[in-house]
Amino acid sequence: MSSEFRIGVKDGIPIALGYFAVSFSLGITMVAAGITAFQGAVMSLSNLTSAGEFAGVRVIAAGGGLLELVLTQLIINLRYSLMSLSLTQKLDEKVSFWQKLLIAFGNTDEIFAVAMNHQRSLTLSYMLGLQSLPIIGWTAGTFLGAVACDLMPKSVSVAMNVMLYGMFIAIVIPVAKKSKEVLMVACAAVLFSCLFRYVPALQGVSAGISIIICTVAAAALGAILFPVKEGQD
């Protein structure tokens, strides 16, 4: 085992613990949407994305179409393309095309953030080490959350259903507090989303499509009104 692999594994421990907790509540949300623990584990192992999976679960629960599902994933996970792009700038020259195919699989927000913070150029060993525990934590958390959901009293699982939303709030609020631009974009997204919920003419729009429209509209509004400054990512 190379030392870079071991360093990667160590760097991945806090991510894995966080993932376990988040995916535990994702598992509970999945059960509420009629997805089994095993299906949830397969989804988490193959997707590795909280917001994308959460939106996917909604589309599945609503019996949405595959095109709707593809568009939802495309819009919500589009940010990964930007992260992958940044990652190319930091990869070791020796990393081959085939090795990149492996590295790409586990490029999540947190893994990307930690990798970009690594002191040296990124090798395959380091990246595989870094990704290993978070992948296990994410998958196991989803499975156990879904299993535990069936064993818990209803009042507890209903309360835990709110956990994932709490996490989303905790991700956005600190950034919105510092950046008026992000705050405006977040408020616009909430406003659009409320329109789809409460305006009778829009209530027929499916869950996935409304998430897409709200996201694209609010982010485009932000990009037009408050373009990011140079050097800001």
Partner: peptide
Amino acid sequence: KSFLYYVPYACLMAMT
């Protein structure tokens, strides 16, 4: 660049 920067926040809030 700006659009991609705002997407995660817009998406999380629209879902929440």
